[in-house]
């Protein structure tokens, strides 16, 4: 019998308390574990499950039950926000996650500012919020993590990213205005997730990497707007996880400025080393998704034990999981952590 419920363990970990062992989670969004193996086993399928709260919560439960991850992580994509703000979406297939078909605006100067709450009140967001509500009511001991597309990535999903990236330098005022607008929209959406039972909010911002933006722009935009969302969610007493993709070598001092309760990083980063360099900042990660897909269960198990020995605070995949990841590799990962 476990001392803590999965929700208690995650919440205590996120508030810096000591627990029996670290939680092992998969936060949803870009990092979701709705793999083909699980879906074909249970019959709750994507892309259908993107669209109704019943199907979404059923699939989230299937993932929880089959993979051994100790949370519900929804939605299963990064398109909810951009669709609400006007971009067209390709919903993909069983194997392939949804993506932005076309960014709606060619430039930050062309953005139409929709009323606050446009994301939060959209039908896609309602599906997610309702699913969070259903899951957290029905399974109060399992944490439901609401996953959010970060402000830079959302902005780069409504404005042509190649133009957008230049405009971060060339049109700073207009770029800030757009990202601030997106940020406010994300905050009201995150608040609704929190109000409806989300135990944590996880923000992944794959366009906002040190490698793409460089330290100065990462600081000026990513850190500032990620913190703005984080602070607003923390005011509600709900902890925030931030995931930064890619190699973070260039932006270590900037990472230290993030207000999130835990920082999640990619497989390329030596997490134990990073923790040390960042004043023992709580860290989440970072089992290679490449290993999870192509490795065998034995190697995954050993790698999981290795991570566990490094005092990582929360164990999780390092990046987006491939939908063709074998289920027994994922269970090798989660069971290695759970047996301590």
């Amino acid at each position: 019998m476990d001392v803590f419920s999965p929700k208690e363990r995650l919440q205590k970990t996120l508030s810096g308390e000591t627990v029996d062992r670290p939680p092992v989670i998969c936060p949803g969004g870009m990092m979701n574990a709705a793999i083909v193996d699980v879906m074909t086993k249970t019959g709750h399928l994507l892309p259908d499950a993107h669209h109704t709260s019943d199907k979404m919560s059923d699939l989230a439960y299937d993932v929880y039950e089959n993979t051994g991850f100790e949370n519900f992580g929804i939605p299963f994509c990064m398109t909810v926000e951009a669709e609400a703000l006007g971009s067209s979406i390709n919903f993909g297939s069983l194997e392939c996650e949804p993506k932005i078909q076309k960014e709606v605006f060619p430039s930050v100067k062309d953005v139409t500012f929709l009323p606050d709450g446009t994301i939060a009140n959209s039908s896609r967001a309602e599906t997610v919020i309702q699913a969070i509500y259903l899951l957290s009511e029905k399974y109060p001991e399992i944490p439901a993590v609401g996953s959010l597309t970060g402000p830079i990535s959302t902005a780069a999903s409504i404005v042509d990213p190649m133009i957008f990236l230049k405009q971060l330098r060339r049109e700073r005022e207009a770029a800030h205005k757009v990202i601030d607008y997106v940020t406010e929209q994300l905050i009201s959406y995150a608040k609704l997730m929190a109000d409806n039972g989300a135990a944590a909010i996880s923000i992944a911002d794959p366009t906002a990497t040190g490698e793409i933006l460089g330290p100065k722009i990462f600081d000026e935009y990513a850190v500032y707007y990620l913190n703005k969302i984080t602070d607003s969610v923390h005011e509600l007493g709900v902890p925030v996880i931030v995931h930064i993709c890619g190699d973070v070598r260039m932006v270590k001092p900037q990472l230290q400025k993030l207000h999130s309760k835990v920082l999640s990083v990619d497989a390329i980063v030596d997490l134990a080393m990073l923790k040390k360099e960042l004043d023992n900042m709580p860290a989440m990660g970072n089992i290679s998704t490449y290993l999870l897909e192509f490795g065998n269960a034995d190697t995954v198990f050993k790698q999981a034990k290795h991570l566990l020995s490094k005092n990582i605070d929360i164990l999780a995949p390092a990046c987006g999981l491939s939908t063709s990841t074998p289920l027994n590799n994922i269970t090798a990962f989660t069971s290695a952590i759970k047996e301590g």
Binding site: L165, K166, R169, R170, E211, I212, G214
Partner: peptide
């Protein structure tokens, strides 16, 4: 060398 990043490279190309 990590002096320029994607935004800079795009502007140079322009």
């Amino acid at each position: 060398d990590g002096e320029y990043f994607v935004p800079e490279l795009l502007m140079c190309a322009d």
